[in-house]
Design a protein around this nucleic acid. Structure first.
Length: 220
DNA sequence: AGCACGATTAACT
DNA sequence: GTTAATCGTGCTC
């Protein structure tokens, strides 16, 4: 990938800046698209920071969206999605996997963005440990894989990613031009009726688009 | 109370 | 390409 495709955020954006609630409090598709290239940060006490560039996301938008958990109304499981934006919505699925969403839009409207993929940036040693036996390219290339790698479980459901001293949050990152963004239907909605099944609400950018020289440990 | 299935993954043919 | 693993959730009876 031509490095010229990558443009750093213009000053005065602080590249370490934690995203504020106003970022999440917007239409979900806009938040979704803009999350590409941002960094998921997990602070582990005594271990250090795990970081990854966000490279794949999906939007789930309201009760009308029959692919969204909120389709069945307000329940104990989806409660977090109905709350204020900027919180983590973490749920358990397929009897063994946790997945992480970021709540979007205003409180009272159930919507969130599912994080489906990261490109490991920092804390590689810890990430590899959590994903023992997996090839380098498959450490965090799925919604449950990235939760496994970043120590994210149901305990994080409802966590406010915008609080100061957050141990889990999203920070500024690298700018991803539209020319690199692929838009497709969402993954895994096998029994969801149309038109929801085919809504192009998945946004992805190829992992090898990200600059290797900024990673803590370059892939071998 | 019972049941079908899931915003998935890893292993396998 | 197919499939087992594994259990919480929401829906039906």
């Amino acid at each position: 990938m031509d490095p010229a495709h990558w443009v750093k955020h213009p000053a005065p954006v602080n590249p370490n800046a934690q995203l504020s609630r106003s970022f999440y409090a917007r239409p979900s598709l806009q938040v979704c698209r803009e999350l590409l290239g941002k960094r998921l940060v997990r602070v582990l006490a005594g271990v250090g920071r795990l970081e990854g560039w966000i490279n794949e996301v999906e939007a789930y938008i309201g009760q009308e969206d029959l692919g969204c958990h909120a389709r069945s109304g307000r329940t104990a499981r989806n409660e977090t999605m109905w709350g204020p934006p900027g919180h983590a919505y973490v749920y358990f699925t397929y009897g063994m996997h946790w997945v992480l969403n970021l709540v979007t839009q205003e409180a009272g409207f159930p919507a969130a963005v599912l994080l489906r993929g990261l490109v490991p940036l920092a804390g590689l040693e810890e990430i590899r440990q959590r994903r023992a036996g997996m090839p380098e390219s498959k450490l965090t290339d799925g919604p449950a894989k990235l939760c496994r790698a970043f120590h994210i479980t149901g305990e994080w459901d409802g966590y406010d990613l915008t609080q100061s001293d957050a141990r889990l949050y999203v920070a500024e990152g690298i700018r991803v031009p539209d020319s690199l963004v692929r838009t497709t239907p969402r993954i895994g909605l096998n029994n969801v009726p149309e038109p929801w099944k085919s809504k192009p609400w998945r946004f992805a950018v190829a992992p090898d688009s990200f600059p290797h020289d900024q990673r803590e440990d370059k892939p071998r």
